[in-house]
Amino acid sequence: MADHTVTSEVVFRIRRFDPTTDADPHWEDYRFPCPPGMTVLEGLKQIKESLSPTLAWRSSCRMGVCGSCGMFINGRPRLACNTQVSELESSLITVAPLPNFNIIRDLVPDLTPMFKAHAEMQPYIIRDDTREQQQPTGEYWQSPHQLEQYLQFSYCIKCGCCMAACPTCATDPVYAGPMPLSQAHRYSSDSRDGGFAARKQVLSGERGPWRCHFAGECSRVCPKGVDPARAIQLMKRQLVVDYLKLGKQKCPASIAKVPDGVKRREGIPEAPPRTI
C-alpha cells in the first residue's frame, strides 16, 4: 500500500482541447512531485503555474460547495477539489472534462443544456400568494417530517457529475437528466410549494423521468451524497398517482401563526430584525 505521508511523483494525464487550434482532443502528460494531502485541483494549479499556463478549467470555492470543478478523474466524475491524489491509489491520474457535455476548452464542459433543463423545471417555490412572498408577514409552517421529504435533494450543488455518469444522458439529448429532474422533485415534494401542476407540463412529456433506466450511477457518483435516482423514481410514482387521480391535492403550507400569550424568558435577547 502506498505511503500517503511522503511526497511522491505523480503523472497527470490531462485531456487537452483548444477549439481554436485543435481538431480533436488529445492527451498530455505532466509529471511533478505530489506532497501529502494534495488534491487534484491543487495538482492542476501546479501544472498551470509551472508546466502549462494555457491549461483551462473551472473552479471556485475549493471546498466542495460551489460545484464548479466537476471533472472525469480516473474514470469517474468527481469534484477536483474534493479528491485527494492519494485516495486514487495510483501514480497516474487521468483528468478529462465531464462526459455527456460538449467541451468548451480543456477541462471546461459546456453545461448550458443542463442549466436550460434545470430552468425548465421551475426550480423554485411556486405559490398563489405572491403578495405574501414579496412582502412576507411570517414563516410558512413546515414539520421536521415534511422537511425530510426534500432535504437531501436540496444539497445538490449542480456540479453535473450525475449528468456525466447517466447512461441515458449519453444517448438521449431529449432526456432532461438526473439533476434537473431531482430538483423538480425537490420543489414538488416541498410542503410549502404548490407548483406541481406547473412543472407537470414539462415532466409529463418527453423531458420527464420516463427514460430513466434506474442504473443508479447518478447517485453513486454524487459528491454530496444526494440520491437523484431515488428522486426520479419518487417523481414517477407521483406522476402515476396524479394520472390515476389517486393522490390528495396538496395544499401549500400556510403561515405559522405567532403564538398568543407567550412571554419571552428572561435573559433571551430579541430576535434580529427580518432581512426579507
Binding site: 409529463s204 420516463w210 402515476v240
Partner: peptide
C-alpha cells in the same frame, strides 16, 4: 401528458 399516460398504462 402523453408520456405520463403511456408510462402509467405500461406499469399497469
Amino acid at each position: 401528458m402523453r408520456d405520463q399516460r403511456l408510462w402509467t398504462w405500461h406499469i399497469g
